[in-house]
Design a protein around this nucleic acid. Sequence first.
RNA 1: GCGGGUGUAGUUCAAUGGCAGAACACGAGCUUCCCAAGCUUGAUACGAGGGUUCGAUUCCCUUCACCCGCUCCA
Length: 585
Amino acid sequence: MSSPAKSEPPVMEKIVSLCKRRGFIYQSSEIYGGINGFWDYGPLGAELKRNLRESWWRAMTREREDVVGLDATIIMHPAIWKASGHVDTFADPMVDCLVTNKRLRADQIEPQSGMVYRFTGAAGADGASSSTAFSALAPAGKPRESALKTAKAFYAARGLKDPEPIGGETGEKVENSTAYNPENGAELTEPRMFNLMLKTHTGPVESEENIAYLRPETAQAIFAQYKNVVDSSRVKMPFGICQIGKAFRNEINPRNFTFRSREFEQMELEFFIKPDEAIEIISGKVAAWSESADLSEPQDDWGWEMWHRYWVAQRTAFYESIGLGKVIHYYWQSKEELAHYARACVDILCEFPFGTEELEGIAARGDFDLSQHQKHCGKPLEYFDEELKTAAAKLGDEEKEALIQRRIAAEQAKEKGALSEAEVRAWFERLFKGFYLPHVIEPSAGLDRMALAVIAKAFDQYEKTDGKGKPETITVLRLHPSIAPVKVGVFPLLKNKPELVAKAREVFGLLKGRLNAFYDEAGAIGRRYARQDEIGTPFCVTIDFETLGEQGPELADTVTVRERDGGAQTRVKTAGLAGWLLSRL
RNA sequence: GCGGGUGUAGUUCAAUGGCAGAACACGAGCUUCCCAAGCUUGAUACGAGGGUUCGAUUCCCUUCACCCGCUCCA
C-alpha cells in the first residue's frame, strides 16, 4: 500500500476533487458561490459518516454496560455557557499590530513603559506622502530612533519609498501601557471582541434578553443532564454518558477542507469516576499506573490516572478498527499547557496531507464542570455513594485526618486553583458521608475530521499501462471494509445477455437488504471494477456464464467475488454469499 | 483579520475584446467471456455584481469562494 509523498502538495487537492467527483463532500451552498467554513456530505459521504458514527456509538455504548447515550438540543439555556466559561473565554479581545499585522490577545499584552512619539504622516523619497497618523513607543532606556525605525516600517508598509516620518520630535511619557506591541513598539488597533460562539435569538423579538448560543461543544449538555441520567437510568459510578451531535464555532479562519469548519459533528463521552480519595477509602489503595499496567478490564481500585490511560487504550483500539492504526500519534500536553482544572490531556493526532493534526482529545478534567454547574444552577449535583459511606464509617479519626492532611499538602503545592484548608475539610466532610461530585475523563472526537482522516489515509494512486501501452493513473480508496460506504458491487458480466442480467438482479436482491450493495451493468467489466475501487468498495461480485451452469453443474449458482485490495477472485455459492461478505466486513 | 495566488463543463486544463475547445468522466446505442478497450451519439461551463466599450469570459472595480503563508484554534 503506497501513500502519497509528503512533498507533493496537490495530494489534498486530488482528495478534494475526488470527494466532489464521486459524491463524498461538496461545498455547502455551492450554487450560490459557497459559504466559508461549511461543507455538505453527498450520497457516499453520508454513508461513510453514518458508518463512522455507528461504529463509535456501538463501541461506546452497545458493547459496554457502563455507558449510556444522550441526544440533547443544540440550543440550550445561555446560563450553561456562562457556567462552562465559554461566554468569557470565547470572547477574546484581540488587537492587531499596525506594522506587522500580527494579531495579539489584548489581555495578554505585557504592559510597556517609555516614551511615545506621535507622527502626523510621512514623506516618501519619490515625492509621495502620507497623512496617516501613527505613534510608536520607545521603551524606557531606548532612544527616539527605536520609535522612528518602527514608524518608517509603518509608512513603508503603506507604499512609501524610504519614508521620512513627520512630527514626533518630542515624546510623551507613558507607564504600563498595553496600546503598543511589546515586540516593536508599534501602535496597536483598538481591542475588538472575537466571539467564537454563534449567536441567535429565541422568540420573535431580537433583544439582549433572548440571546441564545449554538453549542460550541456537545459536552456541556451531558453535564447539564447528568443529574437526570443518574436519577432515571439506574447507573452506578463509574459510568459514562455519550453523545453525538452538531456543534458550531465561529472560526476566524476555517481551513484545510472539512478539518476546521464552522459547523461540525462531535462524538463525546463524559466518563464519571469516583474521586481518588473515595477509591482509597473503599479499596484501601489507588492503583498506580505504569507502562506495564493491565488496561484490558476496569478494576475497582482504579483512580483517575488508570481510567485516563484506559480510555486512551480504548480509543486507540477504535482507531485501529477503522484502519487508522498506522497513522495516529499522541501528544501529551505539558503541565504548562493544561487548563488549570485539567490533570492530564492527550491529543490523538493523525497524519493528514497538510500535517499531523488533532483528531481527538482525551482529558482528565477532575470535577470542574459539574462543580461549575452546581455553583451556577444552585442545585446539588453530588452523587451519593453508599459503598463509600459504609467504608468511610469504618475509618478512625486518625485515618481520616491523615487523608485530609495529605490533600491539604497537595493543594498547597499547586500554583493555581488551590483549595484552602477550610474548603478541603468541607469537601472531606461530605465525602465521609458518601457524597461527592464525580471526576470526569473526557474523550472528545471530531466526526468530520475522522471522515477526512479515513479518506486521506485510504487515498491511493498508482501508475499503470493499459492494454495499448498507454500509462494511466489508477485511484483506489483503500477504506476499511467496516466503514466503506458501498460494501459490494454486483455486475452481470455482459449486459446484452438477458440471462446474466436477470441472474445479477436476483443476486443483488439477495444482498441489498443486508448490506449496502450497488448494481452496475454499464460499461466494460474492468471499468465497473475501477469505479468501485475509486469509492472504496471492498468487494465486487460478477455473474458470469459459470453462474448460469454453462461450464458444468458444479459451478452453477456460484459467483466471482473480486477483492478491491489485491484483486483476488474467489468463487462463492450465491446461497451463502451474504454471509460470506458480512463475515469479512 | 493581514499578505500572496486562483476562479472556464462533473474533473483536469486550453484559447479569445467579436459563434468558448480538448481530454477524461457522465447518459443512450452497438460491441466485448474479468480489471478504465473500441465505434456511434448526447447533455453540460466563463463564481456573482457593477463599470469601461458598438460589443467583456477576456480590461478595471467590488464581492464571494478556494489554495498558500501569517494569525487564531476555549
